[in-house]
Amino acid sequence: MNVRIETVQIGQPIKQEIEIRSGVHRLAGRLFHPTGTPKAVVIINAATGVRQRYYEAFATWLAVERGLACVTYDYRDFGESQSGALRSSRATMVDWAVHDPIAVRDHIWSLLPGLPIWHLGHSIGGMGLAFQDGVSGLERVITVASGPVHLRDHPWPYRALAAAFWYGPAPLATRLLGYLPGRKLGVGPDLPSGVYWQWRKWCTTQGFFAGDIGAALPYPDYNAVGCPVRIVAAADDKLVPPKAVWRTMDFYREAVVTQKVLKPDAYGLQSIGHIEVFAEENQACWDDVLGE
């Protein structure tokens, strides 16, 4: 394991660069550690196409204000975890939602033995627990803006933008180049083709990932999670509206589940949205994300 510790500043957590193996892949991660003994470690499983550095302000807040250690990381072949040409990647959404989170959790269990682990999943990062091994050891689960969304769930006019992403230049460019050229298309970061195609399939098919169960996905265990679960939605989220978020209630049949809708005006904010829940300017809602 390669670890690099950064200089500690007053009011800042101890930060360590960590390297995690997920199969043959190297995942770049970062551990934020409070100056005192943490009461738990929160693993942030990111939304699709969101780099770990986006969560740094939230991770710092967890460590400094809440005394929680926090781990961020980039999925395989993305962000700081990308090591080769993107067109050569064989990564899929199943790898990001299932295999990489297991590898990170196992690594943290060995790195910080005895410390309770909280799973925080943002968007796709909160949808794979039923397909993962080892979830019975979790102390707490928080999902944010996470749910099996379909194209028809999006409000207009956002639905038109989403349809263009799935049926416009993006699939053609992905087929031609062997990866999604998100930056050139102005739709976000570049992504491995396998991630884009599976993401597209799930979001344009009724039942989301149901068609991949027993094939690309293992059979789920919706009774595996027994710890408290908090499901958080943003009222103004156009990408995964609350009605789609609440569908995940069925993923946690043995857990005590609480729900929370974040309403921008309750925090004096103009908007919260989907990705921006974790933007530093939206810190006013973070207490309700955590639920403590």
Rank of each mutant, 00 (worst) to 15 (best):
Tyr75Gln: 08
Asp221Val: 03
Leu269Ile: 10
Gly168Asn: 09
Leu217Arg: 05
Ser83Met: 12
Met249Val: 12
His119Asp: 06
Ala59Met: 06
Lys238Val: 13
Pro38Val: 08
Arg247Tyr: 07
Ala91Arg: 01
Trp197Asp: 11
Asp74Thr: 05
Gly268Thr: 03
Tyr75Ser: 05
Val245Met: 04
Leu120Gln: 01
Asp236Lys: 01
Ser146Ile: 06
Arg21His: 11
Ala130Tyr: 05
Trp197Pro: 04
Arg4Thr: 15
Leu138Lys: 07
Ser81Asn: 08
Gly67Cys: 06
Gln198Pro: 05
Arg230Val: 05
Leu191His: 02
Met127Pro: 00
Ala216Gly: 11
Glu281Asp: 13
Ile18Gly: 04
Lys263Pro: 02
Glu139Cys: 12
Trp61Ala: 10
Arg247Trp: 05
Asp221Arg: 08
Gly67Arg: 04
Gln82Asn: 14
Leu180Arg: 01
Ala235Tyr: 01
Gln206Asp: 13
Pro34Gly: 06
Ser83Tyr: 12
Arg90Cys: 13
Gly121Glu: 02
Glu292Ser: 13
Gly134Met: 04
Ala216Cys: 11
Asp287Cys: 11
Pro192Phe: 02
Gln16Val: 05
Gly178Thr: 00
Ala47Met: 08
Glu281His: 15
Leu111Ile: 03
Glu276Met: 11
Asp288Asn: 09
Asp237Gln: 07
Glu139Tyr: 10
Leu177Trp: 00
Arg53Ala: 13
Thr248Cys: 07
Tyr75Asn: 14
Pro220Leu: 04
Arg30Tyr: 10
Glu80Leu: 15
Gly49Cys: 07
Gly23Arg: 09
Gly84Gln: 15
Asp77Ala: 12
Val42Tyr: 01
Ala170Gln: 06
Gly186Phe: 08
Thr204Trp: 02
Ala173Cys: 15
Gly84Ser: 15
Glu6Val: 10
Trp199Gln: 09
Ala266Asp: 13
Val98His: 00
Pro155Met: 08
Asp212Thr: 07
Phe278Asp: 01
Leu239Met: 14
Val71Gln: 06
Gly11Trp: 09
His122Thr: 06
Gly29His: 00
Val8Glu: 10
Ala69Glu: 07
Tyr158Thr: 10
Gln206Cys: 12
Glu280Gly: 06
Lys184Tyr: 14
Thr174Leu: 00
Tyr179Ile: 03
Lys260Pro: 03
Leu239Ser: 13
Pro38Phe: 02
Gly128Ile: 03
Arg26Glu: 09
